[in-house]
């Protein structure tokens, strides 16, 4: 069949489709009731569950937490170091410091490691090994946080206690466990970003005489930048919000950590440790801790969803 006849056939097919669709819609609407429209409305209401969920979660946590924050005063609540809820002192300064210390230390090793692994998986490993690594990383992501916490408690804490000193329950233990837990997030997102860089970029760079590593460093990584930043921010969000693993290995003292070997308490640990028996203002203070955590996480997610993802599409222009 030559091109001309093919074109005509395709044209006729489209016309036939159009006719069929039109006659169907007409038939449907003469019934006086459009079933497809009804289905669409029902599905739309289902989709609205996400908007409702975010609205309900924000509303209920803010209602329970905000009054106490205003009663104590925003700066006092955030920066006061005294947490003695039964005596009426509600300052989460030590926990803000704890969350920051554990999260940043975890990012310090997990980001380079995760980035290197994703470069390895896309650019350096033989395809079979890259795929195998992919499934192993999936498994790493699937292991529950309480299992990581348990492993940290049993293996990492005695190790730190015996070789580095202190009780072992420490910022370092938290950072090691958290780092492993955020590796899959960092690896998966930056791997996708690196794999999405058009082949032309790499081929062009190689053709200009750059070596493979020079191309990775000067061409591929810069092109994948926004995806890599997304990976780091989402990894950070995961680290800030992680609870069970951290509560099991950091010792949970409400002090400002003065070294990576000193114990600490994060905001998430504070909630899960005391929620079981708290009441009144004490309970409100735990919700207020949740408010601070929630605001952190929502800001990180909005940064990713509203700014970074916008710049991700190559070749759209």
């Amino acid at each position: 069949m030559n091109n001309r006849t093919q074109e005509i056939t395709v044209g006729t097919m489209d016309a036939a489709k159009l006719l069929a669709i039109r006659s169907f819609t007409r038939k449907n609407s003469t019934l006086g009731f459009n079933r497809d429209k009804l289905v669409e409305t029902i599905l739309m209401l289902n989709a609205a569950i996400f908007i409702l969920a975010i609205a309900a979660i924000s509303l209920f946590i803010l209602i329970r937490g905000l009054p106490l924050i205003f009663k104590v005063g925003i700066t006092d609540f955030l920066l006061q170091l005294e947490w003695n809820p039964t005596a009426g002192s509600f300052g989460i300064g030590t926990m803000l410091a704890g969350t920051l210390a554990v999260t940043l230390t975890a990012l310090l090793w997990a980001v380079p490691m995760g980035l290197a692994t994703s470069i390895f998986m896309v650019e350096l490993a033989p395809p079979r090994i890259g795929t195998l690594m992919g499934s192993l990383v999936e498994l790493l992501a699937g292991i529950p946080s309480v299992v990581y916490g348990f492993f940290g408690l049993i293996v990492i804490i005695p190790f730190i206690r015996n070789y580095l000193g202190g009780s072992g329950l420490s910022v370092l233990a938290g950072a090691i466990v958290l780092g492993v837990m955020i590796l899959p997030t960092i690896i998966n997102i930056s791997r996708d970003a690196i794999a999405a860089v058009p082949l032309d970029y790499k081929v062009g760079s190689l053709a200009l005489g750059a070596s493979h590593y020079q191309s990775i460093r000067r061409v591929i990584l810069p092109a994948a930048r926004s995806g890599i930043i997304t990976a780091i921010i989402l990894g950070m969000g995961r680290a800030i919000g992680e609870t069970m693993a951290v509560v099991m290995v950091t010792g949970n003292s409400t002090i400002i950590p003065h070294s990576i070997l000193s114990p600490t308490r994060t905001m998430t640990s504070n909630i899960v440790l005391e929620m079981g028996y708290a009441s009144g203002d004490h309970q409100a203070a735990l919700f207020a801790t949740g408010v601070v955590l929630f605001i952190f996480i929502v800001i990180l997610n909005l940064v990713v969803n509203l700014t970074l993802k916008a710049g991700k599409n190559y070749g759209a222009n």
């Binding site: 969920a53 979660i57 992680e242 735990l286 949740g290 955590l293 997610n301």
Partner: peptide, 15 residues
């Protein structure tokens, strides 16, 4: 909102 919900830590869901 679905993306945001996916990023919310479990302790917040707990609260």
């Amino acid at each position: 909102t679905a993306e945001t919900l996916a990023g919310i830590p479990s302790i917040i869901f707990g609260l």
